[in-house]
């Protein structure tokens, strides 16, 4: 992550990482999640779901910061985000933060 100015508490703050769950069969391919994800995590899939729509696919899963915007912007209740299990405990600096 690119930071313009290094915050004083950077080493205490941990950027959360989310795990995205897509319920593909519910998707109607509106593309809201792909368009509005602030981290560009999604891309429209080439595959079809059972209803014949293109669901999103997750291309950059590690970029997700668990903001839940895709969950809020999914009109089909087909996406939800959970906090990823802690692989990177608090206090450890991330690569970019060095």
């Amino acid at each position: 992550m690119k930071l313009w100015r290094k915050p004083f508490d950077l080493d205490k703050i941990k950027i959360p990482c989310g795990e995205i769950h897509i319920i593909e069969e519910r998707c109607k391919g509106c593309g809201f999640c792909v368009e509005y994800c602030p981290k560009d995590v999604f891309e429209m899939s080439e595959e079809f779901n059972a209803k014949g729509y293109h669901p999103p696919k997750i291309t950059n899963p590690d970029d997700c910061v668990e903001c839940h915007l895709c969950e809020m912007l999914c009109p089909e209740f087909a996406i939800y985000v959970t906090l990823k299990k802690d692989e990177n405990p608090a206090g450890v600096k991330s690569e970019e933060g060095k």
Binding site: E25, R26, K28, G29, C30, F32, K51, Y53, E71, M72, L73, C74, P75, E76, F77
Partner: peptide, 16 residues
Amino acid sequence: IPHIWCPGCGIGLAVT
């Protein structure tokens, strides 16, 4: 769910 609203409809968002 799935509900009856069309692809791209905003009602689902209001419900969310």
